[in-house]
Nucleic acid binder design. Structure first.
Lengths: 157, 157
DNA sequence: ATCAATGCAAATAATTTGCAAAAAG
DNA sequence: CTTTTTGCAAATTATTTGCATTGAT
């Protein structure tokens, strides 16, 4: 996430807290900073680790209590890949409609966007009498081709 | 699911068991019959109930142990809607590429298929260097329009 | 001061698993 | 008979929650 947008996002979150009469504690600051410091997907547990580098007093409970604020605010996107834990995506604020391809071999996740796709989804949704709120496309595949390019180690990372 | 296809699916599952040297127990029969008796999505717990109508001795553990067989065989599709339980879809064998729209108000689930969508997904996936294995599109919306038609009671069922 | 937010540890809830008994082939 | 499958109950594991304490405003 480019520096400028990162700043803007941070601002937005602070305003969000204010609006809701929520307090800016050092733990929340640490968690938000951790989120802003990465481009990669993370789990709650990983966020805990990341946040503790900013403030070692952050507890697991606080991470779990802060995560809903981040998703509500739209800074991160919660994803469920059928595992027993959830994955959070910090690239959501800038690209709210992006989709995911997951390699079944190495769990690599590739993101992509497509206007055509968005358009088609909107069309179908309307035809079925719905107003679209959000959308999540997950494609599972094998990255055989990527392997040839040396990008997939073909083992679960 | 039309009677004919139901039979065919049942056959297929029996063959599947045979291939894997798995035994056809009365419990597995009950579970499979329960799956074949419905068109609707169900949870593990609901399948347990359904199966017990065929054979009251079916246990929760056996349901959980049989579900992977059904998904492996492709008779049902496992879906994760971000709740703390998984949902299984018995319409998958006939329509492996179908997608879901969920109403955020009443949790109503509508299924749909689209060749255009499939095609577009394939195109994109290939362009990114993947071979597509499976795909899952979930759209969340509000069924405002459906409400006008009286189809949405606007409360969680 | 006041009230929200925290850490801790206990609770929750879906799913998984070890094991001895039962049933399929 | 042999090997798989079962039910039960205990274990697992991510997430949630109650509560006394701490900290932001």
């Amino acid at each position: 996430m480019p520096q400028v947008e990162r700043q803007a996002a941070r601002e937005r979150f602070l305003q969000f807290l204010e609006q809701k009469n929520l307090r800016l504690t050092s733990q929340r600051k640490a968690i938000v900073d951790a989120v802003f410091a990465t481009d990669r997907h993370f789990t709650a547990e990983q966020l805990l680790e990341m946040a503790r580098k900013h403030d070692p007093t952050v507890s697991r409970a606080t991470v779990y209590r802060t995560l809903p604020l981040l998703t509500e605010n739209g800074l991160v996107h919660e994803m469920d890949f059928g595992k027993d834990y959830k994955v959070y995506d910090p690239n959501y604020a800038e690209h709210p409609n992006h989709n995911h391809i997951i390699c079944g071999d190495c769990d690599k996740i590739v993101e992509f966007e497509s206007d055509k796709l968005d358009q088609l989804e909107n069309e179908i949704t309307h035809r079925l009498g719905f107003a679209i709120k959000s959308q999540q496309l997950r494609i599972t595949g094998s990255c055989d081709e990527l392997k040839k390019l040396g990008a997939c180690r073909n083992k679960h990372s």
